[in-house]
Each structure stands twice: as structure tokens, then as C-alpha cells.
Amino acid sequence: MADPRTTVVARSSPPAAGLRRGGAPSRPGRRRWSGWLYILPAAAVYLAFAIWPTIAAARLSFFEWNGILPPRWVGLDNYREIFDTPALYGAVGHSLVLVVFFSVIPVAFGLFLTAMLSGRVRRGMAFFRVVFFLPQVLPLVAVGITWRWLYSDDGVVNEALTAVGLGGITRAWLGDYGVALFALGLIGTWVMSGLCMMLFLSGVQKIDPSLYEAAVLDGAGAVRQFFAVTLPGLRGEVSIAAVITTIAALASFDLVYVTTNGGPANQTTVPGLLVYRLAFTQGDIGGASALAVVLAVTVIGLVTVIRWLTKERS
């Protein structure tokens, strides 16, 4: 539940070990009640500051409450309002568009590049790794401010476009009604692509070379090799990259807050931003909670779908 962008980043590592352990039948030695002494401190903090607020949010979503007067039970009204109000369900739609830019494009691009480079770039890889991971460690607020400036009227993006003779299409990208959401999405593409690339490039080196030899003997060309050997071999990496980037796309509050703040004309609102606004400027705690629940359900739903799609079927 940490910073969604990075949290999950590192989640990549552990499942492996967990799975491996699952594979080996139970370890010798007996279970120990004394183990709870060690679990208890973490469990207590987690219960009080994560589980409890989650339950409280779910409960508040059924109430009308402005934070001061006593809450009033309204049943599913807050949820109905989300599905009836274009400004609210529109924000969910925007965040799904962002999934394309944060997740689909970086994964596809990473795979394309991996196929092209064929994982055989070794020299200087340490340098590229450091550079490509860099956007992952930066606070999104600073990333957003940087891109605000790059996208501005006399920013670097327009300068580059003019330099290659595309001066006609320059504009203040984040302020343009039609393209602001896409411009915002491309910031996500910038942040996430390096991560996907490095995951795939390091993953492809672990594929058994004899699989490629066998494919060549069967007469497979580069494209067939990619689909028959590389892609199945990268199943785990693709799954992890897609999960990490999707969660980041849906929790893009930081980025949106400092770049467009939802504008122009609500074209770039996302659920996180509206949760914040509903709760702290409009005093609609129930509505904010319901939207937060919808967001969490969307995250869990998409993650489940990705896991299912990339599951090994034997």
C-alpha cells in the first residue's frame, strides 16, 4: 500500500521465493506459538493504521457526512451518484486511458526493444540500467513539475518540434483540451518504460539458449522465435511489469495534482484527485469514500485480470 508506483516495484522479488517455498513441501520443525510475539508489533500497526481505515472508508461510503454533523445513512446513494455523474465516472475513464500510457505502451515498447536488441547487449549495461531506472526513484511531484515546464509554451518539447519542422503543431500541451490527457499519459510512459525494458532485457538472458537453437532447427525466423520462445519465456516479467505499471496509473494523484490539477475543463481528472477534492474542499466525505472504494476495486480487478491473462497454463 506504499507509494503505489514504487511499492510494487520491488514486489517483483519476493513472490519468487514464496512460490519456491510453496513448491517444496512443508519444512521440518514444529509450528511455534512464540512466533506470534514477533508478528504482533507489525500486525498491530498494520491493523490500526491500514486495515482499520480501510474498513472505516468502506463504512463511510454508505453515509452522507460533511465531517462535522452526525453522519446519515444513505445506502448505495453515493455509489449511484458516481455512476450517474459524468464528472465522476469520467475520472475513472481517464484513469483507464492512463493505464494505456503507463502500462500497455511501456510493456509493448519494452518487448519490442527486447526483441530488437535480443538481450545481447552486455557492455555498458550497468550504465544504461542506472539511467533507465532513474525515473522510478524520483518523487512524482518533481517529475510533474519538470514536465510542466517541458510541455509549456516555450518549453523543450515545442523547441524540439520546431527544430524538426513541426512548428505548426506546437502548443501548451497540458492546457490543450484535446491532448492534455495524452500529454499527461506520456509522462507516465516516460517514467515506466525504462523499468519494463530493464525487466525484460534481464529476463531474456535467463531463457535457455537451446530453446532458440531448437526453434532455428525448426526453421523459425526472428518473428516466430520471438513469439514462440521469447514471449513465453518472459511471462513472469510481463506479468509483474503490467501489474506495477497499472497500479501506478490508477494512483496517479501526485502527477495530476501538480501538472494539470484536473484541467483543462476536467479533461484530466482522476479518481484520486476527486477523492481529495470531495473530502477536503467540498465536504462530501461519503462520496469521497465511495469513489475511493471504486478505485480500489478497479485496481484489484485489473490486477486480477492481468494475473489471469499471464498465468501459466499447463
Binding site: M1, P4, A50, P53, A57, L250, L295
Partner: peptide, 11 residues
């Protein structure tokens, strides 16, 4: 790991 900060921060 999957629960967004947005869900808990208001309550």
C-alpha cells in the same frame, strides 16, 4: 500491496 493510499487517507 494493492490497496491505494487514496482508499485509506480520508478516513
Amino acid at each position: 500491496l494493492t490497496i491505494p493510499v487514496e482508499l485509506v487517507v480520508v478516513s
